[in-house]
Amino acid sequence: MKYPRLISEGSVWIVATIPSIWAGHFLLCYWVAAVWCAKFSGTVPASLTTPRWIIAALTALSLGAIAFLAYRALHSYGGTFSVENEINQNTSHDRKRFLGHVSLLLAALSAIAICFTAAPALVFARCW
């Protein structure tokens, strides 16, 4: 019996990768701000100008990566964004489509969460 390959044929990776981009973006934003404020802020309120630019760049990069993966989910895995139908046919094609579809939904959620994460950088200009 032949088994589909988990990574290359399975599209399982894309499901985990998309929210992982959110996680990476989140941790990097936190880390950049934390290190900046702990290491480089003196007794005067430290300006956050540099971290804010870094966070902006990270955000653009992450959203770009998510858009790329969403594109892959759409085209390579036949995902659709529509939730009008259940993808419940007993075929490998539908299994693939299902994972592509979940990936697309996760892409939307992750993109929103990334924008949320970036919001504090718009508001705060100082470490405290």
């Binding site: 309120p45 949320f116 919001a119 504090p120 508001v123 705060f124 100082r126 405290w128």
Partner: peptide, 22 residues
């Protein structure tokens, strides 16, 4: 929820900024 939570987050952040005096 996305719209409401985004609005709340914004309000929360601005309130936070306003109550910490420089």
């Amino acid at each position: 929820p996305t719209v409401v939570l985004a609005a709340l987050l914004g309000t929360g952040l601005l309130t936070l900024k306003s109550i910490v005096a420089e």
